[in-house]
Design a protein around this nucleic acid. Sequence first.
DNA 1: TCTGGGGTCCTAGGACCC
DNA 2: TCTGGGGTCCTAGGACCC
Length: 425
Amino acid sequence: MSFTNNSKNKIALIDCNSFYVSCERLFNPKIQNMPVVVLSNNDGCVISRSIEAKKIGIKMGEPYFKVKDLVKKNNVQIFSSNYSLYGDLSRRVMRILKGFSDKIEIYSIDEAFLDLSYVKDDQVKEYGKKIRDLVLKWTGIPTSVGISSTKTLSKIANHIAKKNEEGVIFLKDNIDNTLRNFDIADVWGVGKQLSKLYKKNGIDNAYNLKNISNTWVKKSTNVLGAKTVMELRGTACINLETQETKRKSCCVSRSFGKKVESLEKLRESVTTHCLNAAEKIRTDKQTTRAITVFIRTSPFDKNRKYYSNSITIDLPVATSNSLELVKEAIKGLIKIYRYGYFYQKTGIILSKLNDSCEKEFNLLAPIMENRSHTLMKAIDFTNAKYGRNAISIAQAGVNNSWKMRREHSSKIDTASFDSLPKISV
DNA sequence: TCTGGGGTCCTAGGACCC
DNA sequence: TCTGGGGTCCTAGGACCC
């Protein structure tokens, strides 16, 4: 059986190379050719690596303490993550990409799909280079561009482009050889479990998966597995989502800098997360009808007993009011808290989100809402101006001993001239 | 000592109804 | 006392993504 790619669609995936590392390098030219690593919150895991750091053998997602020796020996430059910096640079990159096609899907902080179907086949590679050059010139962020007829194939093209001198790959005809050399585990949509299943059945590259029987894949996996197969054959099944949609749930959670035992401290952190989540949904003009609180001890600590629990509370009336949500969250926390454990993480999830304009029928709601609306607006305004948590509530605590570790922050602020590199002449 | 955080979608199975 | 079949809706948990 053989399948041909006869689609005229051209989807480009533009992906920033080692994005967080590239952001840090912008403001720190000295580390341009050095191995660099960016750590997750709490300086927990490696989440971005420069090529030099990859070569040394530092793996993605590895706990920092496990690579400390490698870091020391090779003089690897370490940074705590600075999400406001990355978010800011991401917006700049995306703005440039929008100039190349209005059919764009911003897929994550560092990548976007662009519909380039309007570009002729023999010009599309050149076009990809143009995109790359402009992003680099205007932001300083290096990217890779993969172009093909479906999202899944453009992901593969991008993967290959990352290791390619030009940084641009257009996959069109005769791609079977390329697919044969593409590891099954690297295919978009194939994670740990699926790749285990596929490998067990002798499917260990993208070409094998492309030629698997429809009935087998439907029986053995689910609709997503079947879609991946179709996409490898050049039939687009995963649409370009050009409309920005509002989130359906909102989660705020953090690990502690050091383990926490007392209900008091858990209460402070749950309150803090709740305030932040409430502010987030208000920014998007949304309300919630359910709040989940979860707490857990460290799943890695083999010397202590593990405890993890969560509780979901349905709210009678949709709300985005911080104070109401905190009240419910704390009630939930008290129900699931157990004395005698060393807690590592807490979080809250707001779900069943709706647009705030979709008013519900409730006689008391209008009066209550007006009052709280004014208060919440005042809080959001102040926090936007003077920094998050400028206004908080007493339960959130001050000078929290449980706060996260951030020992390697570059403290770069794109709104501040002080962060610009200095050049002496 | 030290192992991130925030999402989406799918499915199986339970609850409930007729 | 025992026992059908079919349908919908909801949710928890799993898998995946970056």
